[in-house]
């Protein structure tokens, strides 16, 4: 990363030598980083969609997409993306136009902002905030606002039902998610993502924090609104939940945000519990991506294996089972830390 730093220095120098104020190169760097993240998200999401279709197909003894692009239909997602972009932009007549248009942007902005704190490798992090984990937890709550906006502005009862369910679920599962992460934060003594990965040099936190990892994974799947926790968009009862009325480009943005969210959640699980970029032989960023995609695979596997929970089962699981377990995990971690005299 030293050479990268030198490159940045000379980049800034080139601007100051011409008398251009400092914020111009700073803005250019910020835009470049944001664009890189955006391109990575788009490619990663297209891969994940294709991968999910393949996994679901093979679990159901089918082949899935096989034609577009030749080898196992690898270009299917690209074709779908182009199709969605070319579709007519429809805003329902009864919809609240402004909020309807704004909602997908809010949802996508929230999931894109979470990429700021993902440490892809040593030094490969957009912003190593000292509130790292907390940043993700707080910014992800913006997604719920976007979903409520989408559900309400669509002026459709299924949308509103889906949005209300989604909000109830996200608010309920955010609590065990936060508490399950506290064990790791207490052990490391910092919320910075880089520090957390560096602390896992010897042993990944999945070993001492196994309970926390399982709670995190369960709550994270619920946060992503995926089966078995997909009552917000339960197709058989709500058509599609909050995005019933969305089509074309705007639907694509919701879709993009959903899969980007999945990636973020898995990347954070990798960082907190699976040792981040640590691993033998291969370069750090490759290890990080491999672990992240492993967790994504796990989420897809669960989705196509388990059935949907009922609303009351969902609430019982969150409040009466996951939350006490998460507090137990936090208490035990604290006790061990005190006994070790840290």
């Amino acid at each position: 990363m030293f050479e990268f730093g030198q490159l940045m220095e000379s980049f800034y120098d080139a601007f100051s030598a011409r008398g251009i104020p400092l914020f111009v190169p700073q803005l250019i760097v910020m835009l470049a980083v944001a664009t890189a993240v955006l391109i990575f998200t788009a490619i990663s999401v297209m891969f994940m969609v294709w991968w999910e279709r393949k996994i679901s197909a093979h679990i159901q003894v089918r082949f899935g997409p096989m034609r577009v692009g030749g080898w196992h239909g690898w270009a299917q997602s690209i074709a779908d993306g182009v199709k969605l972009l070319l579709k007519e932009d429809i805003v329902p007549a009864g919809a609240d136009r402004l909020v309807f248009v704004l909602a997908p942007m809010v949802v996508f902005a929230a999931s894109l902002a979470s990429f700021v704190i993902i440490p892809f490798g040593p030094g490969l992090i957009a912003g190593d905030l000292n509130i790292g984990v907390l940043f993700y937890i707080s910014i992800s709550s913006l997604t719920v606002v976007g979903i409520i906006m989408a559900g309400w502005s669509s002026n459709n009862k299924y949308s509103v039902l889906g949005a209300i369910r989604s909000a109830a679920q996200a608010v309920s599962y955010e609590v065990p998610l936060v508490v399950s992460v506290i064990g790791v934060i207490m052990t490391v003594g910092s919320m910075s993502m880089t520090r957390i990965v560096e602390a896992q040099q010897g042993m990944w936190f999945v070993v001492p924090q196994l309970l926390g990892f399982l709670i995190y994974l369960t709550a994270a799947i619920a946060e992503c609104n995926r089966t078995p926790f997909d009552i917000p968009e339960a197709e058989s009862e709500l058509v599609a939940g909050f995005h019933v009325e969305y089509s074309g480009m705007r639907f694509a943005i919701f879709f993009l945000a959903e899969y980007a969210n999945m990636f973020v959640v898995s990347a954070i699980a990798t960082t907190l519990f699976l040792g981040g970029w640590h691993g033998p032989l291969l370069p750090g960023w490759l290890w990080f991506l491999l672990k992240t995609y492993f967790i994504i695979f796990l989420m897809m596997w669960l989705r196509w294996t388990l059935a949907r929970l009922r609303v009351d089962q969902l609430m019982n699981l969150g409040w009466k089972f996951l939350l006490p377990l998460a507090f137990l995990n936090m208490g035990i971690t604290g006790l061990i830390l005190v006994l070790q005299g840290q």
Binding site: I131, L134, I137, S138, S141, I148
Partner: peptide
């Protein structure tokens, strides 16, 4: 930063969602 995160978590993620509800 901590205040900012707490602000978003409590006011955006909690209070306004309850209001919208």
């Amino acid at each position: 930063e901590f205040l900012a995160a707490a602000q978003v978590l409590l006011y955006v993620g909690g209070i306004t969602i309850l209001m919208l509800f």
